[in-house]
């Protein structure tokens, strides 16, 4: 799945919780106080439902979730065929 496939869905989801026009894709959503812990769980449910993979224990890395760019990279890595 390409960036062009993922980004519209991702920004639409994030846009439900933050003003998407006011942020950059590399903004740390959590550190900037734009989202709360409930968003963290909603994000897990979103990527699992939308992209069809499970977020596992070992995926719990702040670098996977902190920004739109980070989430995009995480989704791409999870969808990438195993080497």
């Amino acid at each position: 799945m390409t960036t062009e496939d993922i980004m519209p869905k991702l920004t639409k989801f994030v846009g439900q919780y933050v003003n998407i026009n006011e942020i950059t894709n590399d903004l740390d959503l959590f550190a900037s106080g734009r989202v709360n812990s409930l968003f963290a769980m909603q994000l897990v449910l979103f990527v699992e439902k939308e992209f069809g993979f499970k977020v596992e224990n070992e995926d719990l890395d702040y670098e996977n979730f902190k920004s739109i760019d980070a989430i995009l990279g995480f989704i791409q890595r999870k969808l990438a065929p195993a080497a």
Binding site: F13, L38, M41, Q42, L43, L45, F46, E48, K49
Partner: peptide, 9 residues
Amino acid sequence: EIKDPSVIM
């Protein structure tokens, strides 16, 4: 049931 993210709210 449908695992929708809105279930949290």
